[in-house]
Design a protein around this nucleic acid. Sequence first.
RNA 1: UGGGGUGUCGACAAGUGGUAAGUCAGCAGCCUUUGGAGCUGCCAUUCCCAGGUUCGAAUCCUGGCACCCCAGCCA
Length: 561
Amino acid sequence: MATESGRPSNFIRDIIDNDLKAGKNQGRVHTRFPPEPNGYLHIGHAKSICLNFGLARDYGGKCNLRFDDTNPIKEELEYVESIKEDVRWLGWDWEDREFYASDYYTQLYEYAMRLVFMGVAYVCDLTADEIREYRGTLTTPGKDSPYRNRTTLENIDLFRRMRAGEFPDGAKTLRAKIDMASGNINMRDPILYRITRATHHRTGDKWCIYPMYDWAHGQSDSLEGITHSICTLEFEDHRPLYDWFIDQLGIHHPQQIEFARLNLNYTVMSKRLLLELVKENYVSGWDDPRLPTICGLRRRGFTPESIRLFADKIGVAKADSTVDIALLEACLREHLNLIAPRVMAVLRPLKVVIDNYPDGQVEELEAINNPENPDAGTRKIPFSKVIYIEQDDFREEPHKKFFRLAPGKEVRLKHAYYITCQKVVKNDKTGEVIELHCSYDPESRGGGTADNRKVEGTLHWVSAQHAVDAEVRLFDRLFIAEDPSKTEPGKDYKANLNPASLEVLSGCKVEPSLKDAPVGGKYQFLRQGYFCVDLDSKNGKVVFNRAVGLKDTWAKIEKRR
RNA sequence: UGGGGUGUCGACAAGUGGUAAGUCAGCAGCCUUUGGAGCUGCCAUUCCCAGGUUCGAAUCCUGGCACCCCAGCCA
């Protein structure tokens, strides 16, 4: 995990280094993570969170959590709670600096009034359609609103009355008077306030005018003394507007720096699409383990460390990019490999009777908990005459590279004995293999023999009479297409949903130590992958989610054939 | 046709005029009581293209090309 504390070079750190060298901001570094509470956080937000909080950590600065709650129609308390939980879970601490744009509504109103007094903001009576019309297009300039030259006195009066609730929703707006001919559309007299009678999750019905994001954001940063205001690329051409506001007001000037948002293949990251998948029940909820939401990843079995590691590894730059989801998975494996206890679990059981093993005998065999960490110690696992192995670990007619069990072949049972397959029992009708009869070598107890003979394969197993039943959920990517938005004409991203993204296995057999495994507990099922106890586990029923599989060389060999 | 950005390996991404880091993926091998992990080696004579400057260019200059974002009273 060395890279997590390492300091990868990136253009933002270069800027900060230079600022520090130049003595800007009295050497302060103060960032913020500014989510809108209108949805759950996803892995893309995690990139931004780790960037902002990570910068504060590395430069001995601070990072605020600020909710940009300027649109009461879309925002809810449920979302602010989930956001706080997720940021905390990721391992970051905003201490007492939990802020809301709505904390600044009064100040923002006063700032706006200042602009009105200065003659650079006016009340406009144009309808939404008219405003769009007057705005012009990308290639043609807009034209001035007929209300643009109202007197300052009239604007003061009108703006006060907007706030006082004298006009119906949408009847008027407050606009900055900048330049309707600007090539930058954001500068064509942007709207500062709109009239909307909606109950705000924090301010209730106190306000009937709400600031636009563009008006609130820069001033909020300024009020908080933010030095480096880091945001995504699409706000690059808003920067001149934010600068204009700050300069007009003559207040602290944060420096905005834009970076490329995270894209991941085989998934979607937009809040709108995630909301649709949740609302229309394509997934089980915001925390569906197939979703790239933070809570989905958490339920899936991801650790905060693995996500932070991922954020470090993908870096920060300005070029649009799409990161391979395999990198995210690799980060999870890297962390879980170090910390996850190894256990044995048979997902698709095949019964094996060891004919020469004494009836009724049970041995407690010692098993190492984690070869990567000797401190994890050992545990005892029961062995007996009838065990289960994985169906995939037996082949009647094996390929020469198949190192597992086959008629007449000897394999090692992990931590136990060598067994040799003597007889195959099949279902008369279907021909399906339903049971194996094997012999064991009593000299091989613990997994080795005095003659040092080689066995090609080592299998995991579970003693039948001691096994605990479990349900296991296997997840595959939610979409079959690298870029789900690329579809045939007339179809949308949902056409790319993977119909096999969830496979539920019941009747799985896991070793007895897992009987009371805690929700959220993470394990490596030997030779299979990393699994996490799902919150659906209750009254003795254990449910595991496969967070990620182990690298499977055999699967690759088999696929090539 | 306006404005703002970006182009370095299959995917991310360092590089800031001195001769292309690292990670993931892939490939080959070693090792292995997990076909896991670990270890070793290979994987960009070339940086969107074309000119130019220079002893020397991914880095500087000129001209192209491609891609992304912007016309919500969303953020």
